[in-house]
Nucleic acid binder design. Structure first.
Lengths: 210, 210, 210, 210
DNA sequence: GATGAATGAGTGTTCATTCAT
DNA sequence: AATGAATGAACACTCATTCAT
C-alpha cells in the first residue's frame, strides 16, 4: 500500500514543482512555469491538486511519506556508540543532501508561520530522528564513553546546520576552498564536510583519547 | 562620509522592506505591502529606487555597509587564543542574530543564482571575517594550543549553521526544549545555544585539558 | 406519441438544470453544478444535449410541450362570462405558479434578444392563451355584461404581471404584510393575491353592480 | 453634498456596466466587456470599485441615491384623491421606465437571495413609495370616494407588474398589437399602457360613477 | 453507451511600473 | 520633489467542451 495517494502523472508534476519551488521559491514560481516544465496543460495543476497551495502540500506529503526512515538497523547493530554515532551522522547528511529540495522549500516557505500547512508527518519524522540520536548518546553516556554535559537537542542543529550553511553558501565556499565544479562540490560534501561534521560531534561528546 | 547613498526617507523604506522580505519573501511581498507598511505612496519605491529589484539591492548594500566590522580589537588584545576564539564566536552569533533579516533574505533570495545582484561587498565582509578567524586559529596552532588537523574553512559553517538551523526551526525546538515564549527563546540563544556552539568549536580545535 | 424527444435520464438532467438556471441564472450555473446536482458525469451534458445552450433549449422545449393546455373545457362550459373569466384567471395564475422556474428562465434569459433560441412553441401557447381570454371577454361584451372600452391585450400583463411582481419581490412583501414562512406565502398567493387579481380584472371589465 | 461617493469617471463606468448587466446579466457580462464598452483598462474596475461585485453594489447605491423621490408635492396638492392617484401612477410608471435597467438588474440578480448585497436604501425607497400610495388611498376612503375593501399592498404589484410584464415581453406584444418600432412601443407605453393601468386601479378602488 | 482525462479559452484580480501634474 | 491615476502583463483558477477508451 502506498503512503501517498498520487499516481504517476501527479508524481511527475510534484517532482517538477519541487525542483522549481526549491530554486525560485513558491511565490516566484508560477503554475505556468510548472506546467511548461512538466509539459502539461496549466489546467492540470488545478485538476490534479485543486490549487497551487494544495500542490505544495502535496509535495510535502509525498516527501514526508518517502522520508519515513528505517534507521533502527543502524542503532541496533552490536557496534560501539561512536560507530553508531558516525553512522547516524552519515545517514542524516546523506538523507538531507538527497532531499535537499524539499528541505529548502520547508525552510523557506514554512518559516515564521509564513504558510500554514500540515507539517505533522514531517515534524514527527524529525522528532523520531532526534529520539534515535538521543538514545545513542545516552547509551554512550551510560557506558562512560560520552561526556555527560552535552546539550543533546543542539546536536542535530550542529550536524545539519553545518551542512545547510555550506550548501546554501556553496558558491562562496567553492571559491574559498577552490572547488572547480559541481562534481568537486559533491565530492567535498561526501568526504571533507562529512568528515568535519563527524569530528565536530565526536570531539564534543567523547572524552579525548590521547 | 557615508558608506551608502541613502537618505532618511529611503532608509525608512529599506528597513520596512527588509522586514517584509525576510518574513514573506521577495516575491511574496508586493510594493503595495511595502508602501502601506512604510506609509508612503506606491510610486515612491520606483521613484526612489528605480524598481523593486533595485530596492532589494539597496537593502543588501545598506546592510553590507553596516556590517563593516571593527573586529580587530577583539583579536588584537593580549588575551589567549581560546579567549579570542570565544569572543569571536560570541561576536559572530550576536552579529547574525541582530541582522537576522538580511541574512534570511540573502539565504533565500540569492541561493543557486536565483537572483543575480552584486553581493561583492557582502561577500568581502564574509571573507574578511573568515580571515580573522583563520588568523586566530593559526595563532593558536603555532602556540601549540590548537590542533593542526582542523578544517578551518568549515568552522564558520559550523558556528553559524548551528545558529541558523536552530533559528529556522525555533518552533520545533521551542516545543522540544520547552521554551514558552519569544523571550525564553531569546534567552536560550544568548546563553545555552551560544555556550553549546563555543563548546563545539573549542572541543574541536583544542587539545583536551584534563 | 411524446411531445418531446427526451428519455428519462435526459428529463432528470433537464429538471435539475431548470431549477438551477432559475435560481442562479444560465451564466451563473456551470455544467459541473448541474452534473453534481444530477449526480451524473460532466461529459453527459454535452453527450446528451450537445452543449449547455442546447440544454437550455431542451428545457424550453420540454416545458413548452408540457404547457399545451386543455383550457377549452373552461370556456366551453355553459357558465356566465364572469365565471369563465374567474376560472381563466385562476387557471393562468396556477399554471405560471406551478411552472415558475421556466417562466423565470425565459424572462431573464430571453429578454432583449440576449439569447436567440426558438421560442415559437412557447409563444404560440402564449398567443393561444390570449385568444381564449379574448374570446371570453368578447362574449361578455356581446352579452352586454362587459364594458366595450377594455384594452384586452393588456389583461394578461395585468394578471400575470401582478403575480410575477409579487413573486419576484416576495421577500419585501412578506415583511410588509407579515408572512412568516414559505407556507404562508403560498397560502397568500392562492387566496389573497388570486382574489385581488380577480377583483382587479372584474372591476375593470364589468359594469359596476350596485 | 452628493448622495453617492462616485466621481465622473466612476459614473461613466457605472452607467456602462448598468446597461450591460441589464442586457446580459451579471454573470453574462465580463469585466473585459465593461472595460471595452467604457473604453477603459480592465484593471480600472478593480482600481475604482475593488471588485466586480462591488461594482454591482456601486450601481445599486448610485441609482438608489438617484431614486430618492420628491413625491410629496404630488400628494400635498389640493387636488382630489383620484387625481392624486392618477398622478402617482404616472409618476411610478415613468420612474421605473426611466430606470428600467437597474430594476431589471435588481429583479434578476437579487431574487431568491442569489446575491447578497445591501438593498436597504433601495428597499426603504420602495417602502416609502408604498406608504405614500397608502396615504392617498386612505384619504380617498375617508372621504368616501374609494372603496374600503381594497388590498392596498397589492396595488403596487398591479401597477408595476403590468408595466414590467409588458416591458419584458414587448417583442411578443409589439407583434400582437402591431407596434412597428421602438418609438411606437415607447409611445404605447406612455399613452395606452399608462391609461390602461390607471383604468385598472381606478376601477378597482373607486365606486362606479354612472 | 458512457466516462475520466485533458484542453484552450476565458474568468476576475493583482502586479510593478509609468505618466501627467 | 512627490503623487494619484492609469496601464499592460501576468497571476491562479474555472469554463464548456472534446477525446480516447
Amino acid at each position: 500500500m502506498a503512503l501517498h495517494p498520487f499516481n504517476d502523472k501527479q508524481i511527475g508534476i510534484l517532482e517538477v514543482a519541487e525542483k522549481l519551488f526549491a530554486e525560485k521559491g513558491f511565490d516566484g514560481t508560477s503554475v505556468r512555469d510548472i506546467a511548461k516544465s512538466a509539459q502539461i496543460n496549466v489546467a492540470m495543476i488545478s485538476y490534479y491538486f485543486g490549487s497551487k497551495e494544495k500542490l505544495l502540500e502535496g509535495i510535502v506529503l509525498y516527501r514526508s511519506a518517502n522520508l519515513k526512515l528505517q534507521m533502527e538497523s543502524i542503532t541496533n547493530q552490536s557496534i560501539s556508540p561512536v560507530e553508531k554515532l558516525e553512522n547516524l551522522i552519515e545517514f542524516f547528511v546523506h538523507l538531507v543532501h538527497k532531499n535537499k529540495c524539499i528541505y529548502q522549500i520547508i525552510n523557506t516557505e514554512f518559516n515564521s508561520q509564513k504558510r500554514e500547512i500540515d507539517l505533522e508527518l514531517f515534524n514527527s519524522t524529525k522528532k523520531n530522528n532526534y529520539l534515535i540520536l538521543e538514545k545513542v548518546i545516552k547509551e554512550g553516556q551510560e557506558k562512560g564513553i560520552f561526556k555527560k554535559e552535552v546539550n543533546i537537542p543542539m546536536l542535530v542543529p550542529t550536524i545539519l546546520g553545518t551542512y545547510f550553511y555550506f550548501s546554501n553558501n556553496h558558491v562562496f565556499y567553492s571559491e574559498l576552498i577552490g572547488l572547480k565544479n559541481e562534481l568537486e562540490v559533491e565530492h567535498y560534501i561526501h568526504n571533507d564536510l562529512l568528515h568535519h561534521i563527524k569530528q565536530v560531534i565526536k570531539s564534543l561528546v567523547t572524552h579525548e583519547t590521547a
